[in-house]
């Protein structure tokens, strides 16, 4: 514990995350920052720039592209790739693409497994990364609450929950055998509200989909799905309507639900969050598939 009493909570969280990122760079051979193009990744990237300033980022960014992200996310990615001092790697599971795996015919489980989980393993093996930063937070759901900040993966990328190392103070044991790797979660102790407050404090650019605007959506199984391109087949009786919506999390557009909202600024988004009655992951299809789904996915190598 640091003498945090004189710092605001955002300063404390920021310092903790920067400390973690520097620790990885000091101790690991070849780290990478996974960038899902969402708000948590944006915060991580911002923290990384601060951590290593004035040096450029000592690791590349990696985007696992399922090919089904929102168009606005791809625009944001291009913008990032053009910023100075940034190396953006993009990996697509071409084998999955060849097999025509997609979220519409195969459903969220198979699509996520092939295009995200398998793709991630391929990329990590291909580049030989031994540490990967991820933006997961412990407040996201129950199974994350007890995940370590430094989380070990076997050479097969499996998470062995029976064999986790205790984390005391800020002393992180990064020793590993050949082939093993670490997932590192610098935002472990941040909540959704912290992330938004920090984005506001630091004026961090994020994908505009987080702000309300009129967008074409269809109502499907209680969710609002945005018709982001022509690949989304309309079901009988479905006609896109134009609603003022925004997103709390971003993923593959056919699997991500919008919420009706008028929040067009960070202040409004934060105010809305404070009065919200729905949890963040409510809009993600993957969590509803199965009760213990996260736990299982993690053991199989999902981030």
């Amino acid at each position: 514990m640091m003498t945090t009493s004189s710092l605001t909570h955002l300063q404390s969280l920021e310092a903790e995350s920067i400390f973690i990122m520097r620790e990885v760079v000091a101790e690991c051979r070849k780290p990478v920052l996974l960038n899902s193009l969402g708000k948590d990744s944006a915060v991580m990237l911002h923290l990384a720039r601060k951590a290593f300033h004035p040096a450029a980022l000592p690791f590349p960014l990696l985007h696992i592209d399922t090919t089904w992200k929102f168009r606005a996310m791809y625009e944001y990615r291009e913008h990032l790739a053009r910023s100075s001092g940034m190396q953006m790697l993009v990996h697509i599971n071409t084998e999955g693409l060849r097999q025509g795996i997609n979220p519409i015919t195969h459903g969220s489980q198979i699509h996520t497994d092939v295009m995200k989980t398998q793709a991630l393993k391929q990329a990590l093996d291909h580049y030989g990364f031994d540490a990967a930063f991820g933006g997961a937070r412990r407040d996201e759901e129950k199974s994350r609450a007890k995940e370590r900040i430094f989380s070990f993966r076997t050479a097969q990328h499996r998470w062995d929950p029976k064999n986790q190392r205790p984390e005391l103070w800020t002393l992180y044991n990064t020793d590993k055998h050949n082939g093993e790797s670490i997932r590192v979660f610098p935002l472990s102790n941040w909540t959704e509200l912290d992330v938004w407050q920090y984005i506001r404090r630091e004026a961090i650019p994020i994908v505009p989909l987080y702000f309300a605007a009129e967008r074409p959506v269809v109502r499907r199984d209680g969710a609002l799905i945005m018709v982001d391109d022509e690949r989304l087949p309309l079901r009988p009786g479905e006609t896109p309507e134009r609603l003022t919506v925004r997103f709390r999390t971003l993923g593959c557009y056919p699997l991500t639900s919008a919420i009706e909202s008028n929040a067009t600024s960070l202040d409004e988004v934060i105010a809305e969050l404070l009065h919200s009655s729905r949890s963040e992951r409510h809009g993600r299809a993957i969590d509803h598939d199965d009760e213990a789904s996260m736990e299982k996915k993690k053991q199989e190598g999902y981030f």
């Binding site: 412990r138 102790n189 909540t191 213990a292």
Partner: peptide
């Protein structure tokens, strides 16, 4: 449930905040 599966549970972290402080 985790205990039955033999998962090492050491510590779970919870978060809450009031308008005075944030707590871990």
């Amino acid at each position: 449930a985790e205990r039955e599966q033999g998962i090492t549970i050491d510590v779970a972290y919870r978060f809450f905040a009031t308008n005075k402080r944030k707590f871990i």
